[in-house]
Design a protein around this nucleic acid. Structure first.
Lengths: 184, 184
DNA sequence: ACGGCACGGCACGTTCCGTGCCGTTTCATG
DNA sequence: CATGAAACGGCACGGAACGTGCCGTGCCGT
């Protein structure tokens, strides 16, 4: 049974890679997997949840943050890894589709947050906390906010403007985050 | 003929408000508008483009930035206005749906950028330019990047975490943008 | 007066949805 | 092992919406 579940998820992911999420179909998945439609519906109540499960199960590594003592460098490493996960074909299109699906399916939105967004955010915040204890960050600073200011521009480029996500772009964002825009 | 075009757009917007974008249907729009489906398809090749046109035609004010001389305050005013546009029911759901649609329809993505995102960005950048000339911003600062750092967290909250968009949230982002996170 | 064009209405074939039913296989329990 | 329940694959179904034809009508410029 775990066998079948995993096989269906792999099939869904393969199909999504081949034809794109919008043309992904539960009938198609069931047929390709040699499985009845009931067998799919019994496990996932919608195409969105199946896809969420498939993508996050097979393509979302832990993305743990190193702690070398150099906060800025560690943060940079982490965000570069995130960019390499989200911004590179063919996976970028699938993550785009997942976020899109989350816009009209609250269950997908919840799953995306709990399984992908929040765990990453918590790791970043935890690392920031250490940095703050070392005086590398203002003592009264809101770490959740810093996390948002860091992630936001990434997703903005990813979802809205469609600019490519590059390491260089990330570096420039980090610079603003640390220095602000005031004249020095 | 312009009559009909406008009437179809209004009908589409009304219907979207009533049943939500995902249940919006070209058949439904045509039927409600008392119009043949051809008449709709002749003007818009997809539901996404019709919706883009409808939403931006009837619900996207100019959002011009004031210039009172106080750059930070003017920027704040502008972003508050953007939040009031995007973040408030019932329009927030429609903008969410529009961005979602843009994820799998490049034509919608292009239209969204050219008619909504870019014009606003250009206004902000123009205002920033004045501020830079007055020395309120570092002379070597990349204004497009600042624009992204400001917009990104907004859209991140709007599309990903689902946090409500509040003026207070905007104010905190602006604070980071100007000051950075370094200890003072 | 006439020709063309956009129109509303209708019907069509297609795809996919989600749900029934059927007969078979698998598996835990006794 | 034996047995009954649960899950299964296969199939068919009604429903919704798609995008595209065709038909007859009415308007509008020439």
């Amino acid at each position: 049974m775990a066998d079948r579940t995993e096989m269906i998820m792999r099939t869904a992911l393969d199909l999504a890679l081949e034809v794109g999420y919008s043309k992904l179909t539960i009938e198609g998945v069931a047929s390709r997997a040699g499985v009845g439609k009931h067998t799919v519906y019994r496990r996932w109540s919608s195409k969105g949840l199946l896809f969420l499960d498939s993508l996050l199960s097979f393509n979302a590594p832990a993305l743990d943050i190193p702690d070398t003592g150099d906060f800025a460098a560690d943060l940079r490493t982490q965000v570069h890894a995130a960019v390499d996960l989200l911004g590179v074909p063919p996976w970028n299109r699938l993550y785009q589709a997942l976020v899109a699906e989350a816009q009209h399916d609250p269950a997908v939105a919840a799953g995306l947050n709990e399984r992908f967004i929040r765990p990453q955010a918590e790791k970043v915040v935890a690392r920031m906390l250490i940095a703050r204890e070392h005086g590398q960050v203002a003592a009264d600073f809101d770490l959740d906010l810093a996390m948002t200011v860091l992630s936001g521009p990434l997703y903005f480029a990813f979802l809205i403007t469609g600019e490519p996500l590059t390491h260089e772009y990330v570096d420039r964002i980090l610079h603003v985050l640390f220095e602000g825009v005031r004249p020095r």
